[in-house]
């Protein structure tokens, strides 16, 4: 009569599975209907990049030091340097988002805090060449909110955290 036992066990297990799905039937869906609602992004979100200008003087921060180009593991940054008035500038700056692995090493290395990641992730393009960001588009990306991780800040972020009032 083993099949009788099997049959009873079968029915019982069906019921236990039904119980779980029944419970979940009345839960609120976790779906975020994307274009209507959007997720709250974390403050350290890594999405696309921006090159910064100094808010006081209005000058570009980037000095064309090639460090980000050298550290990039995916080799997506290409730049050329020019010197005007004894200060380096990036004459051209290309960042190929289609090959970028979003590892944040360029941000970590930048001695001038010139390159940062911004919290704007809707960067899909129809044409692949549009994913290559040139200097102009990187400068335009400044309008988006920055990620809180900025080259010189990482050192602070490794230290003992301060109470929230001190760090703003």
């Amino acid at each position: 009569m083993s099949w009788m036992k099997d049959t009873f066990e079968l029915t019982g297990s069906f019921l236990s599975a039904f119980k779980v799905t029944w419970k979940n039937l009345w839960r609120k869906p976790v779906t975020i209907s994307y274009p209507d609602q959007k997720r709250v992004l974390s403050e350290r979100q890594r999405a696309t990049f921006a090159l910064l200008t100094d808010p006081k003087t209005g000058e570009e921060k980037c000095t064309g030091c090639y460090i980000c180009q050298n550290i990039c593991p995916a080799l997506v940054i290409k730049m050329e340097k020019e010197i005007i008035n004894e200060r380096g500038y990036a004459k051209t700056f290309y960042l190929d988002l289609s090959g970028c692995i979003f590892c944040e090493l360029c941000v970590q290395c930048c001695p001038q805090d010139a390159i940062v990641m911004v919290r704007h992730w809707e960067i899909a393009e129809i044409k692949k060449e549009n994913l290559v960001l040139d200097k102009k588009r990187l400068m335009e990306n400044q309008k988006y909110p920055f990620s809180t991780i900025i080259g010189s800040k990482i050192r602070e972020m490794q230290a003992v955290p301060k109470p929230p009032t001190a760090s703003s």
Partner: peptide, 23 residues
């Protein structure tokens, strides 16, 4: 994501520790 800014590819350990404190 709150910790490291990425959801799958974290790059969050560094040689000699972690890259940053948790939030």
């Amino acid at each position: 994501e709150e910790f490291s800014g990425a959801r799958m590819m974290y790059n969050f350990n560094q040689i000699g520790g972690l890259r940053y404190q948790p939030p």
